[in-house]
Design a protein around this nucleic acid. Structure first.
Lengths: 188, 188, 188, 188
DNA sequence: CATGAATGAGTGTTCATTCAT
DNA sequence: AATGAATGAACACTCATTCAT
């Protein structure tokens, strides 16, 4: 049931996965405990369902990453990817955080996360492979994902003052230069 | 008491803060429940004590950050800072993760984390202010901290294959170039 | 819920408030811990609920006290009040004892008790004020309540051998004469 | 050890027997847990020791009760007894309350209390037996003791406003008239 | 399909008691 | 005799899960 999925995301976002009680989800979804267990085997299963949705969204997103090179077009592609990722994070933040924090305990949830992130990392390393400007592509891609996740977190939770566009520009700039050594577009 | 602090870090690292039972900590420390509550008011209080220690370590660390400029000396200072942070993370990872994941609920723990990270961010933005190469210093410092924390996590949890030196070089390179636009030392 | 209230009274009566474990109440009520906490926030809350009921019963009772004078009618009114109080005590003894022993720690329970007893004391002093035969009305009313509570206790707990009617007569006699100096009805 | 006995009385008086922790007693007595268990087998044993002392005091007191008749001399004897009892209560209140509330669980404590009170009741019924003015001597004595205990409690805990002499007079008056039907001394 | 009262295993916390020093 | 750190059994309370309606 859609209302339960939405409620789950809302409560996970507010309290975190471990601290949310099924009771909270049920109350926010304006339904009953019985109904919850009609659609989900248990609390973990709700997260699993959300993880499936999120993974699908990220799949689409990673398929749409354009070639990232040292020039302005590459910068644009990178910035677009960051913006897309942020959009997914705004809805599926709790799922992505559960993946990054890696302590849910459910192997299926972990698997979905590892798979989704591996796909993105693989596309990114592929798109940026030509450069060879960094010592280790795998490390670079991991660091990049970490940075993107955190930046999405601080933006999504409004812990970072400032206009979203400037934030996106700044992060894209750092990443672009970090990976290509190119100066990138001059900051406004 | 030292045994309890060590056990706390070990179990928090393995299971995560929410999932660790006092019973686990007590078993690892080879002591009893009674003894635990002799030294700590409750589970949160153990994390608080660890947070105090960790904050002190980070305080020292942030005081030792040298000037970071576009040249090789700046690169060295940055790499040294990353290495130092990683060393702290290797012990206090669970505390730092609790801070980043921000869902412990104890205001004192939060305060310690915010304070410690603000100190580091402030030193970093100060040391790197002259450059003016990024659109927003605050955003840059936040993104930087996020990246450092995640990179420490993947290194500390051995989720990243590869020699630590190469990892440090790669991350330092990305960061240095990202913030200064300089090519940095040629990767080996 | 009614079963829990009854079980609470039964176990409080048998073991005393402090010594009763929630487990006892639950076992007597033939229900589970979960159900207990569904209806009551904690053990104190159960006592509180009982205290509310008891206070209501005493409220009714104190409203029904007739004018108590030196004559046979006054004696009858007093005896009737004692009998009524005893009836309430037979069910709510543990609550009344908790009030008299005054060591529950819950301000709301204390408030209910003080209020209920103040109401009775106030009616009694009012009804008996005309006499002026005692040095201090407030002291007299307090001593009277104490005597009534204890007498109820020993009767309710069968610690006093003898027919209830004789006991009632004896106490009413002592009280009536104590307050009015009148000989009262000749003991049978 | 005397300091432990004193501390026990102090803490029992403040918190009640069930709610006092050995730790409190030890802290007030400025000694250690080890020392406590050097002198007393357990917490109950402390109460038992205090009960022995209190019983001895009451023994003395009950031996000193003079003949109580309807005249002024009887009133004086009664008032003197009340004053003596109050003096004992001021120190041993917690013990007497433990006896009256009858829920300590230790048979020896109960036995001491029952014995001490039985002695007083027996002396009182003996001293007042000649009168024959009440329906049941045993009931009368029980009610009397109850009244005395409560009156001592409210006086000792300063829950009753007013000069102690007036309180003593009032209670003695009520009791004297209650048991003898005599008007007693005119209140001042 | 939907409900929500009932359940009880699991966990945090307390505190009387012990014993090595 | 005195200490106080250590113990663990006992208890209060929570919350994911079930099932009769």
């Amino acid at each position: 049931m859609q209302r339960l999925l939405d409620a789950g995301l809302a409560v996970f976002a507010e309290r975190g996965y471990h601290a949310t009680r099924v009771d909270d989800v049920v109350r926010v979804a304006r339904t009953s405990h019985g109904t919850f267990y009609l659609y989900f085997a248990n609390k973990e299963d709700l997260l699993r369902a959300l993880a499936v949705d999120c993974a699908a969204r990220l799949e689409t997103l990673s398929g749409a990453i354009g070639p990232i090179d040292a020039g302005p077009a590459g910068f644009g592609a990178l910035r677009a990817f960051l913006a897309d990722f942020l959009a997914v994070y705004e809805r599926y933040g709790p799922v992505i955080r559960a993946w990054m924090e890696g302590q849910v305990g459910d192997p299926e949830v972990d698997r979905l996360g590892l798979h989704a992130f591996a796909a993105i990392r693989s596309v990114l390393t592929d798109r940026m492979r030509t450069v060879g400007a960094v010592a280790d592509d795998e490390v670079a891609a991991t660091a990049l994902m970490a940075m993107i996740e955190r930046f999405s977190y601080v933006v999504a939770s409004q812990r970072l003052a400032g206009d979203d566009d400037v934030v996106l520009d700044t992060v894209a700039q750092i990443v672009h230069r970090g990976f290509f050594g190119a100066p990138g577009p001059t900051p406004a």
